[in-house]
């Protein structure tokens, strides 16, 4: 048991990095996704085209390729830590998936909501911001929680640009202790616990919402 506990302790800082990268990426992806979804549904042909190409292209390319490209592009312009570049790249990738989530949610809001908002004198932008998006966000919550698990798992990919997250720590540990099974197995345990917690959360939320709607 002690080697396992030692390994847990050694990997713990990596867990912090993994969670931070995931949260930053999710936040960034959420902003991009919401914006692009609004572009896709309400935008003029130019922004709509932009949003569609972003979502289609990014979703067609492996996340690890996007991480590489953005990492090298970013480092050509500014001096950013691998941690930040990685988080931004993951957020950029997640944004494309979240675009689809938000788009579906917006489209599920009945047409009458917009009409009613315009009817009480709201501008289109205001109606989107104050009436449509809050409702769409609630509809999107289950898919968003699912996206959290996907981004959490994808966050292991920033390993390739040297971010000291769980997998990188596990690799150090495996090299120094010569016990790769213990090292990577322990990392796997961390991920399983996190995803189980998230799926529990998802169940709870789905039950709550099932009653409400």
């Amino acid at each position: 048991m002690t080697p396992f506990v030692t390994m847990l302790q050694f990997l713990l800082p990596g867990l912090g990095v993994t969670v931070s990268v995931t949260l930053i990426a999710l936040g960034l992806g959420g902003c991009i996704g919401a914006l692009m979804a609004v572009f896709r549904v309400y935008g003029n042909p130019v922004v709509k085209g932009l949003a569609v190409s972003y979502s289609v292209v990014v979703r067609a390319v492996p996340v690890v390729v996007i991480i590489f490209i953005l990492f090298f592009v970013i480092s050509a312009f500014i001096d950013l830590s691998p941690f930040m570049s990685g988080a931004i790249a993951l957020g950029f990738a997640s944004g494309a998936y979240q675009t689809e989530i938000f788009r579906g949610a917006i489209l599920s809001i009945p047409q009458g909501q917009m009409t009613a908002a315009r009817g009480i004198g709201m501008s289109k932008a205001k109606a989107i911001r104050c009436i449509i998006l809050p409702q769409a966000f609630r509809v999107a919550i289950p898919s968003l929680i699912n996206e959290v698990t996907l981004v959490l798992k994808d966050s292991s990919l920033v390993f390739v640009i040297g971010v000291p997250e769980l997998m990188r720590r596990a690799q150090y540990a495996s090299a120094s202790t010569m016990e790769p099974l213990l090292a990577f197995g322990t990392a796997a345990c961390f991920y399983i616990v996190l995803t189980l917690v998230l799926s529990r959360l998802l169940e709870t939320v789905e039950k709550r919402f099932a009653v409400q709607f």
Binding site: K153, D154, S155, S156, L157, F159, M167, A170, Q171, S174, E179, P180, L181, L182, A183, F184, G185, A187, A188, Y191, I192, T195, L196
Partner: peptide
């Protein structure tokens, strides 16, 4: 749970580096 709850990368490393142990 194992295969859907962990990153593919972890699975790959466990299989390739871990199992030989």
């Amino acid at each position: 749970t194992v295969f859907r709850g962990t990153p593919l990368l972890v699975q790959l490393f466990v299989v390739y580096y871990g199992l030989p142990e």
